[in-house]
Structures are given as structure tokens and as C-alpha cells.
Amino acid sequence: MEISGIISAIVIGIVIGVLGRLIVPGRQRVGLLLTIGVGIVAALIGSAIATYFGVADTKGVDWVEWLIQLVLAALGVSALDRSKRRRR
């Protein structure tokens, strides 16, 4: 992955994190910075998974890659929310 790919994954990760939070139903006890962090990690991991399966560089919009990233972000936000609930 080139540096431009990493930078775009970070920018997209911010959006992916917020969208992932919107996908998870109910109220989450996860802060905005953690949500953005989860989105960035989900975007990087999702890009790597999409590259591995050969669906990252297609003509037009990479819908499959975005879907993978969104699912990972939603799972990450949900997991963080559950871990915060257990601590309380």
C-alpha cells in the first residue's frame, strides 16, 4: 500500500467510523475520537482484505471494499461499546 493509499484510508476511515456508528442500533458509549480511530483501523484492514481478494482496484466505485470497511467499523464500535458497558 502506497502513502497515498494510507492517507486516503485515514480520510475515508473518519467517514467510515461515523457511518459505522450510525449502523449500530441504540446508544453507544463510545466517544467521537474512538469512533474515528475505529473507522481508520477498519478502513486500513478493510482495504487490505479487499486487496487480498482482488476487489480493491476495480473500475468505478469500489462498493465491495466500502462494504467491508463499514461492516468492520460497525463491529468495532459495537465491540467497544460492549467492553465499556462491562466496565461499569
Score class of each variant (00 low, 15 high):
53 F>N: 03
63 W>P: 00
12 I>N: 06
84 K>I: 10
32 L>I: 15
26 G>Q: 10
85 R>D: 08
53 F>W: 11
47 S>C: 06
60 G>C: 07
6 I>R: 03
44 L>D: 01
3 I>S: 05
9 A>T: 07
72 L>S: 09
63 W>I: 13
9 A>R: 09
71 V>R: 01
82 R>Q: 12
40 I>N: 08
26 G>T: 08
38 V>G: 02
58 T>H: 00
28 Q>T: 14
41 V>K: 05
76 G>I: 10
26 G>N: 13
81 D>V: 02
70 L>G: 05
25 P>L: 03
80 L>V: 11
43 A>C: 04
67 L>G: 12
58 T>S: 07
65 E>L: 12
81 D>W: 07
54 G>S: 13
73 A>T: 01
69 Q>S: 06
30 V>E: 13
10 I>A: 15
54 G>Q: 13
87 R>I: 11
75 L>N: 04
71 V>T: 09
82 R>W: 13
65 E>I: 00
78 S>P: 00
59 K>P: 09
33 L>P: 00
62 D>F: 12
32 L>T: 13
40 I>P: 01
20 G>I: 03
12 I>L: 11
60 G>F: 03
36 I>C: 12
8 S>H: 01
57 D>K: 14
29 R>M: 09
70 L>T: 01
79 A>H: 04
1 M>T: 05
5 G>I: 02
66 W>N: 14
31 G>A: 05
41 V>N: 03
77 V>H: 06
77 V>N: 15
57 D>E: 15
38 V>F: 04
1 M>F: 07
20 G>K: 05
58 T>N: 09
4 S>V: 02
